[in-house]
Design a protein around this nucleic acid. Structure first.
Lengths: 201, 201
DNA sequence: GTCTATATTGAGATAGAC
DNA sequence: GTCTATCTCAATATAGAC
């Protein structure tokens, strides 16, 4: 009990600082955010940060691992359900948008910094996670094509990339505290994606 | 003649260096690219760069202004044509993808660095250009809704953002020297956007 | 867990010779 | 137009007191 309470308190402080760092990384970019800015936001001096984290890099590492662990678990479970492709795809889209609501800053950091970070050996796991996600989504699209739910001329890999990018990049303008709920946005996107923007004749 | 030839030679060298810098900014990020890396790529020492450019910032400034000047001029002309909304929208999509072919690195830099750069007063013009572009595209979408070419429940601003993001972010995986020509990619995107991915019943 | 104080490095940028 | 040499500063990170 005592140990748990202590651990929880430690984790809580870490979590607070990490959340503040995430907001700064998202707003100002990882490279241009200084540890002094993070410390300022936390109300401490920069040296004190190193009691909680090894380095600035380990902060973004922890942030991205947390996001990936959660979202890949959700994707795996959804695809494993074995439901109809359209149903599964809608659920995947909702999960992706759900992350915008629950982990907005982390998603922004992933979107903005992926290409630069992934070049470092330390962040090679970002590639692995991206590959697994692509395989999961593509398998659903392929199944949908085979079953006649999606157009037969659909390119599953290209369509996946199109969807992934279109969804995640909306983190740049979407505000989860605004009028549009993540699920609503997800359904609107999915609606356009399935039926297109053209008027029905 | 002599003056022109000299100016051309100067501009050529500037252009070469700027193109190299653009590739580095696109691949490694603006903040993490060093002036020494740019100089290495150009085969000179870092101090020599300052004969051509005031600063690293002025390099990215020149790069982005060049892209914006060209693409906004194209958008203006296309919208001013007054053709049918579907026709104009297709042309806009082709122009956006065309920039991926002709200015790939600059587009990548714009996509990746916009949010950070725009916070500096020096780069406030990025906002103005983005605003004008949004107005142009949205006007086409609104006209299309009024004329019954697009769904009546379409949200023009949201749809514009969706399209813009989906198109530009493809610069992250699209290789203009590969199998897919920009116009082909543009038409595929436009096709999906108009008609959706669902099979026709 | 935070502060004081500081080590260390690497970055952007400059001056003047060639 | 490039090089040599160097300045200056800001950033990450550390050591030890409290």
């Amino acid at each position: 009990m005592t140990t748990e309470a202590t651990d929880a308190a430690v984790s809580e402080r870490r979590g607070e600082i990490l959340a503040l760092a995430a907001e700064l990384f998202a707003a100002r970019g990882f490279a241009t955010t200084t540890v002094r800015e993070i410390a300022d936001a936390a109300g401490i001096l920069s040296g004190s940060l190193y009691h909680h984290f090894d380095s600035k890099e380990s902060m973004v590492d922890e942030l991205l691992r947390g996001l990936l662990d959660e979202i890949t678990a959700a994707y795996r479970a959804t695809v494993a359900s074995g439901d109809e492709p359209v149903t599964v795809l809608r659920a995947l889209v909702r999960e992706a948008f759900g992350a915008l609501g629950s982990h907005r800053a982390a998603v922004a950091v992933m979107l903005n910094e992926f290409n630069v970070l992934v070049q470092q050996p330390r962040f090679a796991y970002l590639w692995e996670a991206a590959e697994e996600t692509e395989q999961l989504w593509v398998s659903v699209l392929e199944k949908g094509v085979r079953r006649g739910a999606f157009r037969s001329d659909l390119d599953p890999r290209m369509t996946y990339r199109f969807m992934r990018d279109a969804i995640w990049v909306s983190v740049r303008w979407y505000r989860p505290d605004g009028a549009i709920a993540p699920e609503h946005l997800a359904d609107q996107y999915f609606d356009v994606l399935l039926g297109g923007i053209a008027a029905r004749s």
